[in-house]
Structure formats: C-alpha cells, structure tokens
Nucleic acid binder design. Structure first.
Length: 273
DNA sequence: CGGGCCACCTGGCGGC
DNA sequence: TGCCGCCAGGTGGCCC
C-alpha cells in the first residue's frame, strides 16, 4: 500500500519506538530488491533511534551513531510494530529489529520489491535515490507554477508525469487517478498541453487527496503499523480507482492502460482539450 | 538527455 | 478441484 499517505501513516505508527535503543537485529532474507548491507548487524550496541521521517515514499530512521537506515516498501512491503511476547514469525518476514523495550519492528514484503539501506548519514544523503528525488508532494513550496515549469515541454501524459518521482515525490498509481479526477483533468493530457491554471488545479488536488488519505489511513491504526494490508479507511473513499463501469454523477468510469499501468477516469468529467 | 519498455517477485483472482 | 493467465499500490536499468 505504499504511496505517500501509507508511508506517512506507517511512520506515525512507528512513533512508539522513537527514543528506544536497538537491542538486536535479524536478517531472514539477505536480498530484497537489493542486498541488505551486512554492517547493519553491528547495530547491537544499544544505539538510539533518534527520529523516523518520510522523504517521498522512503522511510528514514536516524540513529545515534551518525548512521541512518532507509526503508522503501516497494509494492507489497509493510512495517509491523509488535512486541516480543506477541510475535509469531510469518512468511515473508525478512527483517526484524528488537528494541530495549521489547518492541519488534518487522519488515514483511511478499514480492520483495522493497529494500533496506544502511550507512553513515552523510553517505545516505548522497544516495542516488535521494539526489534524483523531486519535491515532496506535500511540500509547502510545491506550486502550480513549479509543476508547470517541470512539465511544460513534455509529450508524456500527465498521469505518467505524476508517477515520476523525479518530478514530484510521493504519488503512486492509485492516487494519480484520484487526483486527476478531482482536478477534472484527463489522464491522457500531455504535459505540454497543460497551462498554469491546470497545474494549479492539479496541485490543489494533490494536497487535498493526499491529506484526506492520511487522515483516513491514520484512524485505522493501533498497535501495529499499516493495519491489515489495506489502505486504512481511504479505500472506501476512492472515487474512480478500481471502479470501471460504475457511474459517477451519471457518467461511466473507464479503465485504460497507460505505460502498462491502469488509469481510471471519467471521460465526461475529465475532457481532453 | 528524455522517453518507452522490461525485469524483478509472489499471491490472488477469474475463467475454463 | 486444478491449472493458467492475468493483474497488483514501484522503480532501476536497459535500449533508442
């Protein structure tokens, strides 16, 4: 479930272990998308978890030894916060971190498209995935003009541009459809055909939809993170995603495939210019 | 360089 | 019931 709102929700759920000390780490699967750096196993000396933050869809855990862990959830990754007493190892539990307060942070990922990185914080900051990352979707300085400048010459459809993390970071395939529906803009519209007014609308919709999703997702969390593998409550709020053939305001929702990925939209309410 | 497309994985679902 | 093909919330790397 990992688009920006799910990552944000995950981070909120991890708050209980901020300030805790790392007691032990176990790697059950050495290679996810990439190899897990083996020196992460040296984290047994009661290093403190100083903060847990989000950058785009990445989770950054800063530690007191001037190192950081970075976690990306890929398509199917989840972080589950539980306790030693309650824990039963499940299939696809690849990585487990135990704190001095007997909290367990478990990384579960059936498809293994996620990854886990660990290095000196100064090195982490200059990783390619951070250097190339665009402005965060919820960054206050993200404006319509900024988006316009980035896409004004592109022949690529706006749906695909919204998925490009080098332009704006955090939007995934579900929310891209939801955002364009909210903005009343066709997913087929090319970047170069959108004016500043269109871009302003898109930015307003990005912030509105993502914030709403965070609020809905957050409410379903308790003692573990990312709830039950669904999108918190927000899935009930989808207007177009996965709703092919259904009607909205009397108009049919269509599914098309762009660059191998499903887009849902209402051709009547999202007319191409 | 921008852009198009595939690869990387497992699991769930619908159709036959 | 079983098998098969298709689909899935992401993105790095290859090609042109």
């Amino acid at each position: 479930m990992p688009e920006l709102p799910e990552v944000e929700t995950t981070i909120v759920g991890l708050k209980p272990i901020v300030g805790s000390l790392i007691h032990n780490i176990k790697i059950h699967t050495p290679k996810l998308r990439f190899l897990i750096p083996k020196n992460i196993l040296l984290l047994k000396n009661y290093i403190k978890i100083q903060s847990i933050d989000r950058r785009g869809k990445y989770i950054v855990i800063s530690l007191s030894n001037d190192h950081s862990m970075v976690i990306h959830l890929g398509m199917s990754g989840r972080l589950i916060l539980t306790t030693v007493a309650k824990f039963i190892k499940k299939k696809h539990d690849h990585f487990i971190l135990c704190t001095n307060k007997e909290h367990l942070l478990v990384f579960n990922d059936p498809r293994r498209f996620g990854f886990l990185d660990y290095d000196k914080s100064s090195n982490i900051l200059s990783r390619n995935y951070f250097l190339k990352m665009g402005i965060d979707a919820l960054d206050k300085t993200l404006t319509g003009i900024l988006l316009f400048e980035k896409i004004k010459t592109s022949e690529v459809p706006i749906k695909q541009l919204l998925l490009n993390q080098h332009i704006i970071a955090g939007i995934g395939n579900i929310y891209a459809s939801e955002i364009l529906f909210d903005a009343k803009i066709s997913p087929l519209e090319k970047g170069r055909d959108l004016n500043i007014k269109d871009c302003n609308k898109i930015i307003v919709s990005i912030k509105k939809i993502l914030r709403k999703a965070i609020i809905s997702g957050g409410s379903s969390l308790r003692d573990y993170v990312s709830a039950d593998g669904t999108l918190g409550n927000f899935q009930n709020n989808f207007k177009v995603y996965n709703k092919e053939g259904k009607k909205i305001s009397g108009s049919i929702i269509r599914k098309i495939v762009q660059y191998g990925r499903a887009s849902y939209y209402c051709p009547k309410l999202q007319k191409k210019k």
